[in-house]
Design a protein around this nucleic acid. Structure first.
Lengths: 251, 251
DNA sequence: CTGCTTGTTGCAGGAATTTGCACGAATATG
DNA sequence: CATATTCGTGCAAATTCCTGCAACAAGCAG
């Protein structure tokens, strides 16, 4: 690996993760920590990053980016996103629903992973700009602006022609008895349709979504292949879901 | 192996792999590293690549990033965008092509204008998020990442079902004899199709696009309903276009 | 054919860069 | 305050780079 590539990688990680740990990166790239630290020292000299004990941080905490990055993703969402990104195997076809949590999945997907991403979300599509090896299929239709996804008959038809290996479903609420749900009827129908076309359906759930219900059910819990929750969630809150035998994955 | 062939090969590898390692390529071609390095040195002089210790990298690893390109719209583009936005009447159906100039149109559209916007561009779609009265139709398909627009058979089909009142066409070059053109064959076909479905087709042209030609023609000049150019452009440069009777609108 | 020029290639030797290691100093953590 | 990391510096080995030079082939004029 060329030095300049390594430095570009470091900048990339800073943008993506908001931090770089010297030791972790040294392990990952199979180089000595000295080399990484030297890079960090030089880059700090060029005002490209801020050195801190143990690694480095971006110079400007967060670029004031538009709607895509509006919700400064919580650490919780980043962990869920990283976990889900690791589930994706090369050459799979993955359907990504809209939402900030799913945007985190994209940010953790390796930029050179050969994979087919299908999405009906404009914001997810924009996030995929620099994933050079990813084939992106954009589902069109009437835009539902609240979540910036395509809906309607055209979207339904387009989705029908695809059989994704896995679907990362975005929801607003999860309840043991009332399943996964969202606020809009049309959106719920689309999400349900995508799930039916997909081999597996996973839901990324931050803590505050558990044991809540929104007006429109998408699927009963039995329709979910797996629920991905932060590892530090209280065990009590998971009991009702273990009871109905939904596979729970700890991120 | 001829020198020029070798240099072409190097450019090829840069495009394909994003890097060239001097030693590895010397081994592969059974030449001394000196020869490879000499090539790299010369090509760096011609601004064809960027030399780094150990080999070379493409000049712009990630072409003038779309998101940053978008941020720095020139004053010229803003004026064109404002002018085009004023052409849009309430309740019309407008097809917006991708590109930074068309993004400027959106930024100048009143947020409460009741209008139907059709687009195959993910970035344009995101720009429309806060236009509450606009109905947005997103055209899906295989994403062409260079310009972040949907292409392919699916996009063609979806476009066919729509008859926009006006189409704002984005191009990379405009030439009196060779018409409007762009760099990608597939993209040109899509743009041509949209124009054929639309009642009127307008092209927003910044000064540097005039009298240039890109590989793939979209339409002859006769296929254009109007050319929108900055008002401060030199009159001389417009003469060839007035001669072929293309309506010219000064923004 | 000869002599000259031009362009390409490989090689030698010295300069510059990169990398990993050692060791003492600085910093975090309990 | 004690311990464990992490940091910085100096140093040595390896690699890569550059310059100058010589060998060789191709093209061209005389």
């Amino acid at each position: 690996m060329l030095t300049s590539q390594r430095k570009a990688l470091i900048l990339d990680r800073l943008r993506r993760d908001g931090q770089v740990i010297a030791k972790a990166l040294a392990d990952e790239l199979e180089l000595s920590e000295d080399t990484i630290r030297r890079d960090l020292r030089e880059m700090a000299g060029e005002k490209l990053l801020k050195r801190v004990h143990g690694g480095a941080l971006p110079l400007s905490p967060e670029l004031p980016d538009f709607s895509t990055r509006q919700g400064v993703s919580s650490d919780e969402k980043r962990r869920l996103g990283a976990y889900a990104a690791k589930m994706v195997r090369p050459h799979q076809t993955v359907f990504l629903d809209g939402g900030t949590t799913n945007a985190e999945i994209v940010r953790h997907l390796p930029k050179d992973l050969p994979v087919t991403i299908v999405t009906h979300s404009a914001t997810i599509t924009v996030e995929l700009e620099h994933h050079s090896a990813a084939e992106v299929i954009l589902i069109g239709g009437k835009l539902y602006k609240h979540s910036m996804v395509a809906t309607g008959a055209a979207a339904m038809t387009a989705i029908s022609s695809i059989r994704p290996d896995m679907f990362f479903l975005g929801v607003t609420a999860i309840h043991p008895a009332r399943g996964v749900s969202t606020g809009d009827f049309e959106e719920a129908a689309i999400k349900r349709h995508i799930a039916q076309c997909s081999a597996e359906t996973y839901v990324l759930a931050t803590g505050e979504k558990l044991d809540a219900a929104s007006p429109c059910q998408i699927l009963p819990m039995a329709g979910i292949s797996g629920l991905i929750v932060p590892a530090d969630i209280s065990e009590d809150s998971l009991v009702p879901y273990q009871a109905i035998e939904v596979p729970i994955l700890l991120a």
